[in-house]
């Protein structure tokens, strides 16, 4: 699996590591890792409604942070479970820009096997590192 949950980083919370070859693929995996904390079977989320995410940041870590926040935002503000299929990252005058196309549906406890609610993305050990094997993001979520 391109993302794995880390055992003992945050005792009351959930941590994950996502891996991919490109920044865009890393963001897709990290989004799924966050969503999978809240819903057990990602395949149960049907692509019935679409939302676009937009974010800007000075570095890739902050961009990932802003991007992940959007899943939490739409879950609370519109009760949507979303998955991202396509991410585009641009760079202009030192600022990174992100556009992501997300699709999903309203939370339905009768159809979605729900787990714990994610309250926030934290900065604890938040990191994106470039290794020979690819890009690796470490993220700790407050539950």
């Amino acid at each position: 699996m391109p993302y794995t949950y880390l055992e003992e980083i945050a005792i009351a919370d959930v941590a994950f590591e996502a891996r991919a070859d490109t920044r865009e693929a890393l963001f897709v995996e990290a989004g799924d890792a966050l969503m999978n904390v809240m819903v057990e079977d990602l395949k149960s989320v049907r692509p019935l409604v679409r939302r676009s995410f937009h974010a800007q940041a000075e570095d890739l870590e902050r961009l990932l942070f802003e991007y992940l926040q959007q899943f939490i935002f739409f879950k609370d503000a519109e009760q949507l479970l979303l998955r991202v299929s396509k991410v585009a990252i641009t760079q202009e005058t030192g600022v990174l820009g992100l556009t992501a196309e997300a699709a999903g549906e309203k939370i339905d406890p009768s159809r979605h096997d729900l787990n714990a609610d994610v309250k926030a993305v934290t900065l604890h050990r938040f990191r994106v590192r470039n290794e020979p094997a690819g890009l690796i993001a470490t993220v700790v979520l407050d539950i």
Binding site: A12, F73, D76, A77, D117
Partner: peptide, 18 residues
């Protein structure tokens, strides 16, 4: 505004976790 959008429909809910 984001905080308001996230919270305005959640009065009277328990939440999850602990």
């Amino acid at each position: 505004h984001k905080a308001v959008q996230r919270g305005h429909n959640q009065i009277g809910t328990l939440g999850s976790g602990n």
